[in-house]
Design a protein around this nucleic acid. Structure first.
Lengths: 371, 371
DNA sequence: TGCCATGCTGAAATCGCATTCATCCATCGA
DNA sequence: TCGATGGATGAATGCGATTTCAGCATGGCA
């Protein structure tokens, strides 16, 4: 029923060894014979058995992506980018949703890590200790692990320039006259939230008579923003920075419901620039992150840092996907690269503030209240 | 370095055959010996090699999901549901994004179908002929294919009750006094769009002096809705049904930009009830689809119809995931089941209109203009 | 007591492919 | 002309698990 390499060899009148070489190491076979075998393979509709190949080469041709929540537009975009790049390189992608659960994260990495050539762990909620354990005990030594949105010694990573994004946002608000700014943070364990807080502190140090109010931690979802909205209203700030757009949208909605005008009374800034940011009114001022590029960079760095041989499919498959392979070939622009020769490389993804309608000049009333 | 079954066997003082049985067919081994082997396996940290197992059993323990666009919140939600259910049943999930391209769809199913136990194809854009070819030539006979959001003879499927959703929406608008209703359709090849058009026609037949205006086909995205918005304004309808929420949101946005008030001047109804539907104002009246349930149903039906043995992991792994397996064990509520003994089963997922702020009583002005 | 059924166990075959090793032939240099 | 060289090929091996098949004991039954 199913065509095996033996069948091809028999039909082509060569040994299985030669057939194998003709398809996956073409230079080792005499040109005439090679082409003949390839033709026969095509005619018979031969498809190499991945399990058999994997068993002997140890490579699966699969990568794995673990995200906290597939439904979150931020992660959906990352997944889309990663998937596209992986496919362009000849890999299939296993996707897992960790449901914002640190324990589930390690479990998934453990399970899936055993059947892939590399793992991309996006915005892990787990602790550094657990992260350490992953690299050591859970994963095989030859399965590289790459982090997105998190730095950890010994692991390659792709991170967003959080500090710079926050800096741009704060500068923008400061220029509009805001002097008392709230920060609505993300989940407690979130590394990027910690980064942004640090960036916020650093940015505000350089500005005169600015006051930063920590509004606390919230789930990075619309619902979290609704809760945060009340704190915003109560805190007397004239502007608020949200950990991400979903949170910002929730704040926007709550403020509107309470009759607080945006941006007249309070300015709101998000982070990520998800599609929904332009759907609401006022449209959300936010920090835009090139998510597709981030996804590409993640795959490329994983392959490179882990020295994963890009799926050297059979000559057959290679020909099939050649066009495909170049379609997405735009190189990821790595804004910066840190790390010495020994340290694993990290790529820093630059971000950009995009000013829309949710930010405006600080209200006089609040300014007076302040003074 | 890596522990193999031989190692376990040697350490336990039994043959590889017995070790294998102790782990994956426990009843064939004497209790004492069985427990001993399992203990040794645990101590040694034995993890069965999936490739080797797959080679001989032919089962991979993977499922595959192909969607037109991972970033579309509708598909993201489906993917989340499918992933969760797959994992609960012990499967890993390969996810592929077809980029709304029918050709890419078949290519992906072909590539990935070779390395999974089943394929879920969501909202395929391909023609019926291509779909036929998939089942026959592209996929192995023992790899079941399930469709979501599409019916096709010979293939099991999970579909939304499009006709009923549209009927509910039309009835709602009719009750509000609307007599001239526009329909902004989805992509040309979309099966669900065809369904909804048919449902619309059917529903309107039953209502007196109602007038349905076909506004054409649009990409099922926000941008498509912006274009549709102008047609809505020009067509003189008092209400519009959009093929999905993204489209509806685009229409909403465009109408607002043109000074058309919603719902005072025009009522807008979406479909799907994506999260963003509640984020805008006026909040979108729409047809809510239980997407998580849909995802679950898809996996369950695929397993059942394709008689895919649920990954009978080794006793070891089974024990590990036992808790996990029950966590999501809520049975999918299949609203209805069609199909005779020979025809593959289909599950119909019921939907429900949720009325929000984007629909209201038909404006007197437009009513007069009509009369 | 003898024989068969039953229950466990181990040796060995197998899955499909890549790869090492040995072989063969042609070619080149001396 | 002969040996050396090297390129092309085939036979054989092994990856790690499952699964047949045969063997061995034990217990039941006549």
């Amino acid at each position: 029923m199913v065509v095996t390499l033996r069948d091809v060899a028999r039909a082509a009148g060569v040994s299985p060894a030669t057939a194998s070489r003709a398809l996956s190491a073409p230079d080792l076979v005499a040109p005439a014979r090679r082409e003949h075998v390839q033709q026969v393979a095509r005619d018979l509709g031969y498809r190499p058995n991945r399990a058999a190949r994997e068993l002997i080469t140890g490579r699966t041709g699969n990568l794995c992506l673990v995200v906290p929540d597939l439904e979150n537009p931020f992660f959906a975009a990352v997944a889309k980018g990663v998937q596209a790049r992986a496919r362009a390189l000849g890999f299939a992608l296993l996707v897992a949703d960790a449901e914002e659960d640190p324990r589930l994260e390690s479990e998934l990495v453990g399970h899936l890590g055993a059947q892939v050539d590399g793992v991309i762990l996006c915005s892990p909620r787990m602790t550094d200790a657990e992260l350490d354990r992953l690299g050591k005990d859970v994963l095989d030594d030859d399965v590289p692990l790459l982090l997105v949105n998190r730095l950890h010694s010994g692991l390659p990573s792709v991170v967003i320039d959080n500090a710079d994004g926050i800096r741009q946002a704060v500068t923008h608000l400061y220029a509009l006259g805001h002097r008392r700014i709230g920060y609505a943070g993300g989940p407690v364990g979130s590394w990027s939230d910690a980064q942004r807080r640090r960036g916020l502190e650093h940015a505000s140090h350089g500005l005169r008579s600015i006051d930063v109010v920590d509004l606390g931690h919230f789930p990075p979802l619309f619902g979290g923003g609704v809760a945060a909205g009340d704190l915003v209203a109560a805190s007397g700030v004239t502007a608020v920075l949200a950990h991400n757009d979903l949170l910002a949208l929730g704040i926007l909605s709550r403020l509107r419901a309470r009759g607080v005008r945006v941006p007249e009374d309070v300015s709101v800034v998000g982070y990520d620039d998800i599609p929904a940011a332009t759907l609401v009114s006022p449209a959300l001022t936010t920090v835009t992150v090139p998510l597709a590029r981030l996804g590409r960079a993640a795959v490329d760095l994983l392959i490179e840092a882990g020295s994963v041989p890009t799926a050297t499919e059979s000559a057959l498959a290679a020909a099939l996907t050649a066009a495909e392979r170049t379609r997405h070939a735009t190189p990821p622009i790595t804004i910066g690269t840190t790390g010495a020769a020994t340290a694993p490389p990290s790529v820093l993804i630059g971000v950009e503030l995009v000013v829309r309608a949710s930010t405006g000049v600080a209200s006089a009333q609040s300014s007076e209240a302040r003074g």
